[in-house]
Amino acid sequence: MQGEAGYGFIISLDTQGSGAVPDPQRPALRNRIYEVAEGAFERAGLAEEVLFQEDRGDGILAVVEPRRTERVAGEWVEHLHQNLRAANAGAARPLRLRVGLAVGPVTPDGHGFSGAAVDLACRIGNCAEAKRVLAAAEGAPLLIAVTDGLYQDVIAPGGRWIEPDHYRQYTTELPEGPYRPWFMVPGRQTPPLPGEGDAPAVGEADAQAGAGERRAPTGAGQTREGRTGEGQTGDGNSGGDHFHFGPVTHDGSGSILQGQFGDITFDHRGGER
């Protein structure tokens, strides 16, 4: 059964180097992921704006109310960074996260949401360049990757805790072809070039394989590429009336969300994948 499409702010969060984490340590890793991410939603005043949240084993996929684009790109990102710094203090294995952000149409069904914007957020946060940039940023716990459309519409104008000049654009190869996301490492003036400086993080050697020639970074004036799945990022009036939601809870093994999106009611329980 298909629901009516509406706009959403998509957040795809993945753990860097999670493949090297032994199974006995994974429950603690997952608890830390939820603590820092959901704590950031609370501190940014977005806890009630989370329309959907899905467990991804070593990450989270969330859809946030689309009228909160600046708050997600600014306050939520900053609180996530500070929560990670606090959680990693004295940790033997620091938690390092990659986050892909996109805005676009999403369609609900009985299992969650789908849409090109969902795919794009996941792919730019998990692409080879994202892994290489974070691997090169020694000591940094977080990398943010945003679509070109989101950068032009939300990041470039600036806002509370949004610093456009801290982003840099790199070309990456997605299944659909070349694409140019914008990357930012909180706490750094600009992100490092992919692969420069430090050796890959443990478990990330595969990110170095198959690296092709990279284009030099460009400024915001470059022609935009690959806007697939992106759309209105202003007040969210397009499709915004279709979002109705209830509480999101986490029981340690996944997330449970109960609510409505248009005339579709869903009860999603995430499990480790």
Rank of each mutant, 00 (worst) to 15 (best):
G221V: 01
R188K: 11
D109V: 00
L143K: 07
G210E: 06
L120Y: 12
G221W: 04
A199L: 13
Q232L: 15
L61C: 00
G45H: 11
T218K: 14
R85Y: 05
G212F: 07
A40T: 02
L174Q: 06
L150C: 06
G112E: 09
F41H: 12
P105V: 05
G262I: 05
C127A: 13
G8P: 08
E4D: 11
P141A: 04
R26W: 08
T223L: 12
E204V: 03
T223A: 13
I264G: 05
E42S: 08
R180A: 11
E65D: 14
A207T: 08
L174M: 08
Y7V: 13
V118F: 00
T223H: 10
V99P: 01
G90K: 07
H250M: 04
A211Y: 03
T15S: 08
Q222I: 09
P66R: 04
G125H: 01
G112A: 07
P186D: 08
Q258L: 14
R214D: 11
G57L: 01
Y179G: 10
A102V: 02
R269S: 11
T265I: 12
I10D: 00
A207G: 05
E4L: 12
P94Q: 07
E35S: 11
P105C: 01
D235N: 15
G197L: 05
G115T: 00
T223Y: 06
T107Q: 10
D267F: 12
E163R: 14
E225R: 13
H268V: 15
E4P: 03
F113Q: 05
L257N: 13
D153I: 05
V248W: 06
D241Y: 10
G149K: 10
P247F: 02
T228N: 09
I264H: 09
Q169E: 12
A156N: 10
E48H: 10
Y34R: 15
S253M: 10
W182H: 06
P157E: 07
V146E: 01
Q2P: 10
A130K: 04
A128V: 06
E213Q: 14
E75P: 01
Q208N: 09
A62K: 01
D23E: 13
E138Q: 14
V154A: 09
A128S: 13
A136D: 03
H244P: 00
